[in-house]
Simulated scan of single mutants.
Amino acid sequence: MTDRVTVTVDDGVADVRLNRPDKLNALDLAAFEALAETGGRLAADPSVRVVVLSGEGRAFCAGLDFASFETMARDASGDAGADPDTRLPSDITERLPGRITNLGQQAVHAWREMPQPVIAAVSGHALGGGLQIALGADIRIVAPDAKLSVLEIRWGIIPDMTGTAALVRLVGEDVAKELVFTGRMVAGEEAVRIGLATRTADDPRAAATELARDIAGRNPHAIRHAKALINRASDAGADLAGQFLAESRALGELRGSPNQAEAVRSYFEKRPAVFTDPS
């Protein structure tokens, strides 16, 4: 694991922080690996009863690192000469051994599938993949002025880190489509109103830690059973393995395509995009 994620454990509460504040905790390959590894390790630790997930500095997570988008636009298979941390796997439909996810999806799904409750504390921005990480938590406490967005459409792609399943589950089909189609920013209060967040707090990390300590003081077996049962009821009838693979296949078709490259170029060149209509 790298220093992309820090972990401290105190009285059964694991304080997990994305740790790239100079980049607004933007995601690169090292961050995906660190998140997936951390989630798996904490899930197997019986002394951890609750997890608080947040970001160091001014943002929860600003989404995928710009360098990764630039690499994606240049070449769907990645640029062999680029920084290894900015390159993405060339075959995102390949599943991790024994899992229904690829690495990016596991960086999110690790928090939903772990037996302990996970509380995301969101301040500043939670954009694109950053928002999807927050959606992997069981509870989201957000600052009133936090900015959340399913921002992938800006880059000509779709949410591919388990976000399509999470959005429908949390906000419903129509709101999910509006958020995905537009990529519009949602502030904290609206996020609570539409179901994207649980509640607001002026200091989300302090509020999340207080709630975590409350939960950590209760029967951990009951808490774990409760999470598993509620997840099962929420996912009843859902083919998550198929959904996650479909996300990856869709992104695989989009990544590096002419229209996706145009979405990225037009953003950085600050001009209207000129897209080719589907044939």
Results as ranks from 00 to 15, higher is better:
W111D: 01
R112Q: 15
R112F: 07
E113M: 09
E113H: 01
M114S: 15
M114W: 14
P115F: 05
Q116T: 10
Q116S: 08
Q116D: 01
Q116V: 09
P117Y: 09
P117V: 13
P117D: 09
V118G: 13
V118R: 04
V118K: 05
V118I: 05
I119M: 03
A120Q: 04
A120E: 12
A121W: 12
A121N: 03
V122C: 05
V122W: 03
S123N: 11
G124L: 04
G124K: 05
G124C: 02
H125Q: 15
H125G: 09
A126M: 04
A126L: 06
A126E: 06
A126T: 08
L127G: 03
L127K: 04
L127H: 04
G128M: 10
G128T: 07
G128N: 09
G129P: 01
G129A: 14
G129C: 12
G129E: 12
G130Q: 00
G130V: 13
Q132M: 13
Q132E: 15
I133E: 06
A134C: 12
A134E: 13
A134Y: 12
A134M: 14
L135H: 10
L135R: 02
L135T: 14
L135Y: 06
G136Y: 05
G136C: 05
G136K: 10
A137I: 06
A137P: 11
A137H: 06
A137D: 11
A137K: 08
D138H: 12
I139N: 02
I139C: 02
R140S: 08
R140W: 00
I141P: 01
I141M: 00
V142E: 12
V142N: 05
V142F: 01
P144N: 13
P144I: 14
P144M: 13
P144L: 14
D145A: 13
D145I: 08
A146P: 06
K147L: 15
K147P: 00
L148N: 06
S149N: 03
V150M: 05
V150N: 06
V150G: 02
V150Y: 00
L151D: 00
L151C: 01
L151K: 05
E152W: 11
E152P: 00
E152M: 04
I153M: 04
I153N: 09
I153H: 01
I153T: 11
W155E: 11
G156K: 07
G156M: 06
I157N: 13
I157C: 11
I158A: 02
I158K: 10
I158W: 08
I158R: 15
P159T: 05
D160G: 04
M161D: 03
T162M: 07
T162A: 05
T162P: 06
T162G: 02
G163E: 08
G163M: 02
T164I: 02
T164R: 15
T164H: 01
A165C: 02
A165G: 07
A165N: 01
A166N: 11
A166D: 14
A166L: 11
A166F: 09
L167V: 01
L167K: 09
L167C: 10
V168P: 01
V168S: 13
R169S: 11
V171W: 01
V171I: 03
V171F: 00
G172Q: 12
E173M: 10
E173Q: 14
D174Q: 12
D174F: 00
V175N: 02
V175T: 15
A176Q: 07
K177W: 07
E178R: 11
E178I: 04
E178M: 08
E178K: 08
